[in-house]
Amino acid sequence: MPDCQFCKQIKSKENMIYEDDKAAAFLDSSFPGKVTIIPKEHYPIIENVPDFVVGHLFIIANKLSKALFECINSTGTNIIVNNGITAGQTIPHFCINIIPRRENDNINLQWQPKQLSDDEMESAELQLKEETKNIGQFDKEKKEPVKLEKKTEKIEQKDGEENYLVKQLRRIP
């Protein structure tokens, strides 16, 4: 996507701290030590991202979270996906955020628990169960089919002497 901030950043490599064939990660200047991991391919929300790419991105997220533990003395990390504008997503390119944490850092990511009735809990359970029945098949990375080159061996011949390949051809069975 030409107008996408993340797609542009993949090209410019600004603040990039990691890159491979599927993923890229950047430091975000909106918070000290915050890291954003994105798929290189443009997908708006997690539902669009192929399963194996999701798996890969979270493996990278864990390793980068480890890096934050080890190099900027954070004592914790939050890994957050904001999936959809309602959930706080601001750029329409799926990303995983890592926020380094410390004791008493005055960051509030803690929600107040809601008191739900037994009925409310049960109906949520039933509704979700209905949709989770089909979970289990995950798409794997398709390896590019090996292209068989149709190149035939070119037989070069020097004047006066016969190439061994030609000799093979001349052999009478």
Binding site: G76, T77, I80, N83, G88, R101, E103, L109
Partner: peptide
């Protein structure tokens, strides 16, 4: 929308 949220460590 949905959030996926992980807290690693007590301070998180």
């Amino acid at each position: 929308g949905t959030n996926i949220f992980i807290a690693n460590g007590m301070s998180a």
